[in-house]
Amino acid sequence: MHVWDALSSESKIDFSAGENGRKNTSAIAYMTENPNLTRALLARLESLEPISSFENAKVTSIDLGPPQDSPGTLNLSSYPHVTTSSSTSPLVARLLIGADGINSPVRTFAHIPTRGWDYDRHGVVATVRLASRGGSHSQIEEAPKVQDNVTAYQRFLPSGPIALLALPGDYASLVWSTTPEQAARLKGLDPADFAAMVNAAFRLSVVDVDYMSKMPSGQVDELAWRLQATDVPREDETKYPRIIESVQEGSVASFPLRMRQADQYVGERVALVGDAAHTIHPLAGQGLNMGLADVASLVRAIEYSVSHGGDIGVQGNLEAYESEMWMKNNRMLGVVDKLHKLYGVSWWPVVGLRSLGLGTVDKFNGLKGWMMSQAGG
């Protein structure tokens, strides 16, 4: 993975599999598309009996059960009752897990507050197709020798980082964090001009990128003209991603960036995981990783409770999950938040200090290995 600062040619850091401290691995991380994860999870659920699934259904309400009718009946007054658009009677949950996103209805039901702030930034995402190295696409000459599509790239612009993450074949996933105004302009460009803007953001100066981002159209020709005056040393060309050749139709989207942390992850018969519990800036690519770690920890807490004859919905039996993950996630949220703020500063003394710090870290493989192990869980 190549990471560098757009405001300093000396500020860069490289991560490679040989530095991550793991044996018998040729990668520091893997990208898996969401449809693949979903298909695998559904296939696993279908193999487990008895499990009921509800398709094309929405949760219409979540309430506590009615008071106990008589002393001899089961008291369900503390159990969540979930009503869906496809059910005639509510679903009664011994444990209701909220994996329902940043605006979690489960969290609202449990009266669990969150703390944090909005970044006044939007993440623009897309799936893009890469040209071959050595091709002549977009009038940009590429270096002829390079590995297959296995490298991730991230460049920190003053408005936010832009990252290109490798997917199978000649495809890659784009995540560009920028201002809401620029995000709207990017989404309004035709696919060729959008691709030209991405190529510019990885190669041109901040002044060039800012100018081109304000153009209503014509980025393809503007990029070709500006590259004629841009000196990209031959030996450094492999530090740039392959040229964006096209954009997958319908894949361009954007979403507001926020930082949130729930005051607690569990309540009586309720547990929160993923974005329902915390939301993070995407610059470190940790959102899904944190959610998966939540699930693994919650499973361990449930397994322990079941194996010891406990009630899986009692808050005390869920606190092992919260004690393991809340502070760990809080530290990650804090680190990423501070990185976002640090790289949003254009004042030259700060740029110089962060360049010095990044260059120093790049010299210590052990430290980089520790950082990768933390990011990888």
Rank of each mutant, 00 (worst) to 15 (best):
I244V: 15
S254E: 12
Q248Y: 03
L204W: 05
D221V: 04
Y240T: 02
S159L: 13
G218Y: 09
N149R: 07
D208R: 00
E237I: 08
S246Y: 04
V150M: 10
L157D: 01
I140E: 11
W176Y: 13
Y211D: 13
N199A: 01
Q219M: 13
T230H: 11
D170L: 03
Y153I: 03
N149T: 09
A200I: 01
Y211A: 12
P241K: 08
R185E: 05
V206S: 11
A201Y: 01
M215Y: 01
A172M: 06
V198S: 03
P241Y: 11
W225K: 15
L204C: 14
L204R: 10
E249R: 11
E142V: 14
R203H: 07
M212K: 04
I162W: 06
E181H: 13
I243T: 15
S251Y: 01
A163K: 10
I162L: 12
T179Q: 09
M215L: 15
Y171M: 14
Q182M: 13
P180T: 13
R203S: 06
M197Q: 10
A192K: 13
A229E: 12
S138E: 14
R203E: 01
G250D: 05
M212Y: 05
S251N: 08
A201I: 03
E245R: 13
V198G: 05
V232L: 15
V247L: 04
V207F: 02
L223H: 03
V252L: 05
L167E: 03
S251D: 02
F156Q: 08
R226L: 14
S251M: 05
S173D: 11
E222G: 01
S205F: 09
V207Y: 02
A172P: 07
A143H: 10
A163F: 07
D193G: 06
L165R: 09
P161Q: 10
S217T: 12
P233N: 08
Y211R: 09
Y211F: 14
